[in-house]
Design a protein around this nucleic acid. Structure first.
Lengths: 359, 359
DNA sequence: GCACTAACCGCAAACGATTGCGCTGGCCAG
DNA sequence: CTGGCCAGCGCAATCGTTTGCGGTTAGTGC
């Protein structure tokens, strides 16, 4: 090991290019202002500034300004065990559902001087454990979790340990953690009403995983809506997908067709499941919406360009993220506050995949 | 300020829930093994393990094991000014092009014990500057940059300062920085050949921003391909988009139609620009591919479900990311190595948006 | 003129790891 | 028997901040 005192980004390549002088430290500022580092620290922090005289505060701040001083977050974290950082735990960034949420989160975090560490779990509990461990060792001050399952021992344990968390989209059973979700129930109800208004009476449901709160909320809402509109309540018309993706959506649709019970419309657990239906329709020469109407859930990007454009339930992803971030920051600021949860309003986005029932 | 020595994630809420004992430190391990912290440090690090006797090394490692010791990355970074972290600078995570690249990057980083910090710049130089500053202050060991413009003073300066970087998708003019891109030239050439084979002779090009290397590479390749196939080389058939998005794609298509020069096919700078064309076609009752064929670039997700499914050139996004990460790690490991660049092979993905020219 | 207080500021100890250097003891050669 | 060497380990400094505590100064009341 040769001694290498250069900062991380300064390469060891010998006398490489222009100087790149090392960033100035608090000591530099203090020296420039003719005070002790401790005083400089207090002068720079608004919360402690009243502990130093106005005059020295001014001098220190000017020195910091001219030196272009930027506090070293690493050193600060080490001392304070805070990091102005939160962890963001996603199943898979590749799902177009998440980027808008991420943007919403980052927007409000940034306004408060925080930032987010994004990790993917691929729905693998081992990975999830490892990623969360890694986040915690980096001193994140809280977690925004998008991977919750109804039965989720890891999250339960974290909560017992007092880890600050908020859930997005899904929640854990009997766990009193702030959650922000779309209003699944009215979303589904809007969808069913829309189909009922179009004359459909035998409506199928490709439910999301019943291991997730969202999956059960939506399928429960589906049953209720069916009864409310006095439509045909046939258990053989609902099939569950093991995962929220196209593949399982397609599988469920094949299963449904295989059962032979007829239907003229389907409400899918989410947009990806709906896309799975599209695949099967293409396979089997079924026409949408002529033969069967489909409605999705989420209104993920580019659905309007599909063939046919997918009718779906629009949820304000950006707001979901923003709200979650706000709640997490609230928790961090005043941990005693009782957890609230918020339900965001949704709206039906009618496009081309739904049509009146063929007479 | 009340004294708060609890770790970041342990709440101040009084005696909240189960204990959540503080994570064990190197000293704890050392004590348990009956050695000094320095020795424990050496024993735990494979590179320095030969400095301690095999026996003590064993004892220390066992102690670490039973205590569940996890080194504190913050403290380590502070001391070593390394972080096992790289920065990932994107224009906008919401662009479906990026998530697969991100996954590729994370995959190889993870294998080497690194992880990535993702930031968005929204194509705003101020934000870019701020975000990169923030990354650097967090001691990232290198940057993967997806926001390069041909003329990019900030990146040029960073390179002069010796900051480790690799570019993805785009490069900076006259800057000798490792880059991984798709093979734009053959991609465009495949597209043009495909259209020529279908009988098209007047082919338009909606070029990407000429401020980006990718934009100029693709439009240059377009001109060459046109000449190679002896097609009509009419300057009024190419219009430039200011940004790589649907909106500007639509604008460019309107401009093109406004010019009145006729054409039967268009190769778009990327998929989003192509989607912009779809919008305008819908507006004006133009039929694709009957009236005009369209080919995109990138093969972003879900294009196969569009109406019509978009013919495009497929680029291995995941590999782009993986390769970039590998190169960055190489740079970090041996900074003297001369920068290589890699060009990844592309392939034409023929779908429904291209058809033989109408007689 | 003295005691007392408040306002300011510096000292030094942390936070948890890494690392140059120096000390110890055992071993071997002369 | 002595000197030298080396392996193995501990000491202490260090990274850049934050913060409890104690010391100095000036100001006030009597």
């Amino acid at each position: 090991m040769k001694p290498d005192q250069t900062a991380a980004l300064q390469p060891t390549r010998e006398v490489r290019r222009a100087s790149a002088q090392p960033p100035s430290t608090l000591r530099d500022v203090a020296e420039a202002a003719g005070v002790h580092a401790a005083t400089a620290s207090r002068a720079l922090n608004p919360k402690t500034r009243r502990l130093v005289s106005a005059e020295t505060a001014r001098r220190v701040m000017k020195a910091a300004e001219t030196l272009g001083y930027q506090p070293n977050p690493i050193a600060r974290s080490l001392k304070t065990s805070r990091s102005r950082t939160v962890g963001l735990v996603l199943p898979d960034l590749t799902n177009p559902l998440f980027p808008p949420i991420v943007r919403g989160i980052e927007e409000v975090l940034e306004a408060s001087g925080y930032s987010a560490w994004i990790v993917n779990t691929d729905n693998d509990p081992k990975r999830e454990q490892a990623q969360i461990d890694s986040l915690r060792s980096r001193q994140v001050e809280g977690l925004i979790i998008a991977t919750a399952r109804l039965d989720h021992p890891l999250l339960r344990k974290l909560h017992e340990q007092g880890v600050m968390m908020v859930f997005v989209n899904r929640r854990v059973e009997n766990l009193d953690v702030p959650t922000v979700t779309a209003d699944d129930a009215t979303g589904i109800s809007l969808a069913v009403k829309h189909l009922a208004d179009l004359g459909h009476t035998r409506i199928a449901h490709l439910a999301g995983p019943q291991s997730t709160s969202t999956g059960v909320a939506r399928s429960r809402a589906f049953r209720h809506a069916i009864r409310d509109h006095a439509l045909e309540d046939d258990p053989s018309l609902v099939v569950e997908c093991a995962r929220w993706n196209e593949e399982d959506g397609a599988g469920a649709m094949r299963e449904l067709l295989g059962r032979g019970s007829d239907f003229t419309a389907v409400v899918a657990g989410n947009d990806l499941i709906a896309l799975g239906c599209y695949d099967v329709f293409a396979e089997r020469g079924i026409s949408c919406p002529a033969d069967v109407s489909v409605v999705g859930f989420n209104d993920m990007p580019f659905l309007d360009k599909l063939s046919p454009p997918l009718t779906t339930v629009g949820v304000p992803h950006h707001d979901v993220g923003a709200e979650a971030a706000r709640m997490l920051l609230d928790c961090v600021e005043e941990p005693e506050r009782h957890p609230r949860s918020v339900l965001l309003a949704v709206s039906l986005v009618v496009r081309g995949s739904t049509a009146p029932r063929r007479p």
